[in-house]
Nucleic acid binder design. Structure first.
Lengths: 212, 212
DNA sequence: CCATGCAGTTAACAACTGTTCTCCGTAATT
DNA sequence: AATTACGGAGAACAGTTGTTAACTGCATGG
């Protein structure tokens, strides 16, 4: 229990977090390129000029949001692919892994809807720097998934290049699925999950027969 | 050679098209929710009030753009999946079909970059009506692809449900690929094409082994 | 304990936004 | 030939925007 942060810096980080939260809220109904500086400060309950103490521009705010949003996605991604299955079923654990992965995605979407909405929206959004930041993080994710896949026995004989291709396909599919959950009405969730599982199963089958 | 359209209506459609073109241009560097009415009229070279003669709001303009952009995508999509292959190679026409499909996508992106940029951007964008319009059209595309796939002998034994799942996967993958082409530097195009082909090949393999 | 640093405030700036109302010229209708 | 319908122009409106400058209060480091 170290104090580790002065009262001053603590308060600063607190308001900074308030900026991020307020922005995420406002971004549920618009996109970053239309997010106004004053709009955010108004939502936070602070003077417009205070914004500059934390960010150079709204684009800068966006880059910070990328870190926050994709940081929260991080554990989900690795969890999705590793799936860490309780050993037991000798049947075909692939389907079980997929079920667990999709459930994990659904859970994350329900827990952090604004995060994944932001990422899905700004991945192709109108702000270059934010697009670049998201692309960089997604590439990092794909790398991690590749590393995780490489550990699995199913990946014997695979080149690193092909593994990265597969990892990218998985990562893209996760975001598409998450976005689908987001826009789906509660009663449609099961249907979305069903389709997502079948998609992943088809990809897994493709993986199994990729060689030879 | 019928006149078919009065001088008046013709001129109106002309200005309307000018609005669409100007908007598409402006949307290369921002997203629809930040597109201002005055900004568009300025680009067209017309008074701000003239806008209301054609659209209720910028969101309305967006819906019109969806029709234009996805209308141009229409022939590409069906062309991509049918692939109409010159009969000849008995080898494995799957790879050849994929090569042709990816080439078709690349060609379309180079021909209509603003169109696919708009669709990719506003698919998850901040304007609800536009998102809905895009989703509807994409569903229609998936339906068409499903119908096209159903004709192929490889689809024997497939349920309509599974075919629609596969079609959706293809359609999503096409848009992701197109978007990747868009953001890729000219020298990276080959690399993007390489990865896209391998992804589609993996999906095709999954398709081949889906049953049993 | 005092001087410095810095998060946040207040006030003001020109520029811009969407929208309304009134008007104009002319193609279309009768 | 006279009237109507309508695409577009012009001016004005109240609000909003990003950014600057000079300020205040207080936690911090010497």
């Amino acid at each position: 229990m170290s104090h580790s942060l002065g009262v001053r810096q603590a308060q600063k980080q607190k308001t900074r977090q308030a900026f991020l939260d307020a922005a995420l809220g406002l971004l549920e109904e618009q996109s970053l390129s239309s997010l106004g500086l004053r709009e955010v400060t108004r939502a936070v309950g602070v003077a417009p000029t205070a914004f500059y103490r934390h960010f150079h521009s709204t684009a800068d705010l966006g880059v910070a949001l990328v870190e926050e949003a994709l940081g929260s996605l991080h554990p989900m991604i690795s969890g999705t692919v590793s799936a860490s299955g309780d050993p037991g079923h000798t049947h075909d654990d692939s389907d079980e892994r997929i079920d667990r992965a999709v459930a994990l995605i659904a859970r994350h979407v329900r827990g952090h809807p604004a995060h994944i909405r932001f990422v899905a929206r700004e991945r192709n959004g109108g702000v270059q720097k934010v697009r670049a930041a998201i692309a960089e993080q997604m590439d990092r994710f794909a790398e991690e998934v590749r590393a995780e896949l490489a550990k699995q026995p199913e990946s014997a004989g695979w080149s690193d290049d092909d593994l990265l291709m597969l990892a990218g396909l998985y990562v893209d599919q996760m975001l598409v699925t998450a976005s689908a959950f987001l826009e789906a009405a509660p009663e449609e969730e099961d249907q979305v999950a069903r389709v997502a599982k079948r998609r992943m199963r088809l990809i897994s089958i493709g993986r199994r027969h990729w060689l030879g």
